[in-house]
C-alpha cells in the first residue's frame, strides 16, 4: 500500500467528517423531498433537517427524573462512534487516517456500539416506550448481524482481507469482480441490512409515532433540545456513512486514489453524486412499500442471511 503524506491523510479525514456531519441532514432532507414529490406534495426544503437541528440545539434539555448519567451519555456516544467511522473509513479517499485499522468488522462493531448506547439510554428513561423500542431494535440488530458479517466475509474473500482500503483498492484493480455474482448477492444482503440498521421502511417507519409500530422513535421520546439534536444528527450520519460505504464497496470509481487536492475534489463530487442517487433510489423504494409486521422482519433478515451465504459460496466456487 502506497503511503500518502500526512497532510493529505488529515485532509481526507477532515473532509469526510465535515461531509458526513453536513451531508447527513441534507441526505435526510433529500430523501424526504423525493418522497413528498412522489406522493404529490411539495415537501419542505432539502436543508430543513439542518434548520431543525439549529432550532433544537437552542431548546432546553430535559431528562426523566429517574435517569442516570447513561441517558445523557448515549447521544454523545452515538455521534462519537459515527464520527470515528467517518474519520477512518475510506469514504472519499482510499487513505484516511488510521487506514490500517479501518477494518470492516471494526466498523460494524463501532456501529453496534452506537446502537447499544441508544438502547441503554432508552431503558434509562424507565418508561414503557423506552423499553419497547430498545427491545425491538436490539432484536432486529442481533438478527441482522449474521447477514452483515457473512456479507462482509463474501466481500473479503477475493481481497484476502477485511481491511476497507484493501477491499476497495482490489476492486478498483479488478473491475470485473464488481459484476460477479458474489458481489451482487452481497450487495442485496448489505442493502437489506442497511435498511434494517438505519430504521427505514419496510423495517421501521421513521415518520411514525404510533406505539404499536414504533421501533426506533420509541427510544427517542424522552430526548429533547440539544440531546435530541445529537440523536437526530447521529442517525442521519449513520445513514450517510452506511450508504457511502455501500457506494464505495460496490461502485468504487471516483474515490480519491491519489493524495493531490484535485483527486480529493473529484472524490467529493462523485461520492456526493453517488450518495444522492442511492438516497433518492431508497426514497423511491420507500414510497412503494408498506411497513412489515415486526415479526415478519426476522424472515426478511433470514433471507438476507441466505443471500450472503450464497455470496460466500459463489466467491469460493469462483476463486
Amino acid at each position: 500500500m502506497s503511503n500518502w503524506p500526512l497532510d493529505s491523510v488529515v485532509a481526507v479525514s477532515a473532509c469526510q467528517v465535515i461531509g458526513v456531519v453536513l451531508g447527513g441532514p441534507l441526505l435526510v432532507g433529500l430523501m424526504r423531498k423525493v418522497r413528498c414529490r412522489l406522493e404529490g406534495r411539495a415537501g419542505p426544503p432539502i436543508r430543513q433537517p439542518l434548520l431543525d437541528l439549529r432550532k433544537l440545539a437552542r431548546r432546553e434539555r430535559m431528562r426523566p427524573a429517574q435517569a442516570s448519567f447513561v441517558f445523557s451519555a448515549a447521544p454523545v456516544l452515538l455521534v462519537a462512534t459515527t464520527l470515528v467511522i467517518a474519520a477512518i473509513a475510506p469514504l472519499l479517499g482510499t487513505h484516511p487516517a488510521l487506514a490500517s485499522s479501518s477494518d470492516l468488522f471494526a466498523v460494524v462493531f463501532l456501529l453496534l456500539f452506537g446502537s447499544v448506547a441508544i438502547a441503554l439510554g432508552a431503558l434509562d428513561t424507565g418508561t414503557a416506550f423506552g423499553g419497547m423500542g430498545a427491545s425491538r431494535s436490539m432484536t432486529i440488530g442481533a438478527l441482522a448481524e449474521p447477514a452483515l458479517l457473512v456479507a462482509i466475509l463474501a466481500l473479503s474473500i477475493p481481497a484476502h482481507s477485511s481491511n476497507l482500503p484493501t477491499i476497495i483498492g482490489s476492486s478498483l484493480a479488478h473491475p470485473l469482480w464488481l459484476a460477479s455474482p458474489q458481489r451482487l448477492l452481497a450487495l442485496v444482503a448489505f442493502l437489506i441490512v442497511i435498511i434494517a440498521e438505519s430504521g427505514r421502511l419496510p423495517v421501521d417507519n421513521p415518520g411514525t409515532h404510533l406505539e404499536l409500530t414504533m421501533i426506533h422513535e420509541a427510544m427517542l421520546l424522552e430526548y429533547s433540545g440539544a440531546d435530541l439534536a445529537l440523536v437526530k444528527l447521529g442517525e442521519s450520519m449513520r445513514l450517510t456513512v452506511l450508504i457511502t460505504l455501500l457506494a464505495d464497496l460496490f461502485v468504487p470509481w471516483g474515490i480519491a486514489t491519489g493524495p493531490s487536492p484535485g483527486h480529493l475534489v473529484i472524490g467529493l463530487v462523485t461520492t456526493a453524486a453517488k450518495v444522492a442517487v442511492l438516497g433518492a433510489g431508497l426514497a423511491t423504494f420507500e414510497v412503494a412499500v408498506a411497513k412489515l409486521r415486526l415479526f415478519r422482519v426476522p424472515e426478511l433478515l433470514a433471507g438476507a442471511f441466505v443471500l450472503s451465504v450464497l455470496a460466500v459460496v459463489s466467491a469460493l466456487v469462483i476463486s
Binding site: S115, V116, G141, L149
Partner: peptide, 30 residues
C-alpha cells in the same frame, strides 16, 4: 468457516442484546 462466522455474528448480536437487557433492566430506569 462461513458457518463459524455466522455463529460468531449471531452470538455477538445476541450477547449485545443480553447485556443491554442486563444493564438496562437491572441498573437503569426506575
Amino acid at each position: 468457516m462461513p458457518i463459524g462466522v455466522g455463529v460468531l455474528a449471531l452470538t455477538g448480536g445476541l450477547t449485545a442484546f443480553t447485556f443491554v437487557k442486563a444493564i438496562g433492566i437491572g441498573f437503569l430506569g426506575q
